[in-house]
Simulated assay, not measured.
Amino acid sequence: MNVEKTFLKTFLKNFEEEAFAVDFWDGEEVVLGKGEPQFRVHIRKPLNKKDLLSSTSLAFGEAYMNGDVEFEGDLFLALNTVLKYMNKFNSDHKALPEIFHKITNKSKQREEVSSHYDIGNDFYSLWLDETMSYSCGYFKNENDTLYQAQMNKIHHILKKLNLKEGQSLLDIGCGWGMLLIEAAKKYKVKGLGITLSQEQFNKFSERIKEENLEDYLEVKLMDYRDLKKSKLSFDRVVSVGMLEHVGRPNYELFFEAVNAVLKDGGVFLLHYISGIKESEGDAWIKKYIFPGGVIPSLREIINISGDYNYHVIDVESLRLHYTKTLLEWYKNFNNNIDKVKEMFDERFIRMWSMYLCSCAATFNNGIIDLHQIVFTKGINNSLPITRKYLYED
């Protein structure tokens, strides 16, 4: 028996409580667990032992992208089962310096953000909802559509910000702009969105004109670090799904930027993917999906906020909402697969399927979380003292 096969069979012992089957390249079958296998894994070529020791997820992820590993059955079910044991995976960060780099300067981060968000608005519009919201939805009801969940999320955030007519709102990492559009239409606030993505800037600029909101909204191609010297000032600041791109060395810099533009007593809502503990992240995700991305822990962000005299008013986990959101995206992606195939090759399609399903599985298993934190800059005694207002129409 060759060394790769021996290593893989040893690794499979981690999953003995789960019912699935594995077919090796030489025709040998291994059946794990009891009862009928829930899915089948075909390993069509040996996987390099050194690669598996450097990063299990990267080795398997690339093998899946190349068609050397195939899952027969529901992809989410398979990944949800396997990633339950992610603490058994190998991850040697020192062996992959080109992936786990510490470069967080402006030009590098602009390049990394563009590599993901500038794939093309036509592509994202195939599987996102009409709002073009690329972040966790909020499912008030089990049968909410993706569009309803995203609108729920937007209005949930706007309520948490406790907006009043005439106030000013900054959205750091504004995406395609739907949150600010709703804020302007419902609360008559003046808003600025900043992004590093040219595609998002272009689309948001179009939307502002289409909605006749030129007197209320503006979007800029701008790095958050430039806020400190901008001399801008806002009553409210929101950031949705952007902190993950900042990098651990820059978390304090991010708070300094927010602090420079938020008025005393102002409200800051931070919505981001979080971890229980500080981590450098997953090699496959960092190489293929979010280069340079790092998931902050809840505790480190709250710890930093105290240094700036930011008071924590509310913390909410939307972890299971993100599982549902990702599965809705995956369903839309599959429903439009013929159009996707006109844009991208098979390797990209397999990569994106792995991305959506593996992320859904990691949220489902609590490997990562999604938190919304509401802060005030110093003391603000004018906010409601209960959460009742969040759930009133």
Rank of each mutant, 00 (worst) to 15 (best):
L8V: 10
E18I: 00
A19C: 11
F20A: 01
A21C: 02
W25V: 05
D26N: 12
E28G: 11
K34M: 11
G35K: 10
F39W: 12
R44V: 00
L52T: 04
S55P: 01
A59T: 14
F60G: 12
V69A: 07
E70V: 02
L83H: 10
F89M: 03
E98N: 11
Q109G: 00
S115P: 04
S125W: 02
T131G: 09
T131C: 07
T131P: 07
S133E: 03
G137N: 08
N141L: 12
L146H: 03
Q150R: 02
M151H: 05
M151E: 13
I154P: 05
H156F: 14
L170C: 09
A184F: 01
V189D: 00
G193L: 05
T195V: 05
R207Q: 10
K209T: 14
E210N: 13
L227H: 03
K228G: 03
K231S: 04
V238Y: 07
S239D: 04
V240T: 11
M242S: 11
M242L: 11
P249T: 14
N250T: 00
F255L: 15
F255D: 07
A257G: 12
V258I: 08
Y272L: 10
I276V: 14
D282S: 02
D282M: 05
A283F: 01
Y288P: 09
F290W: 10
F290Y: 14
V294C: 11
I295E: 01
I304P: 12
Y310V: 01
T323P: 07
L327V: 08
W329P: 06
Y330M: 04
N332L: 07
R347N: 07
S353V: 01
M354A: 13
C359M: 08
G366K: 15
K377Y: 04
N381R: 08
R387S: 08
R387L: 09
Y389D: 15
D393P: 02
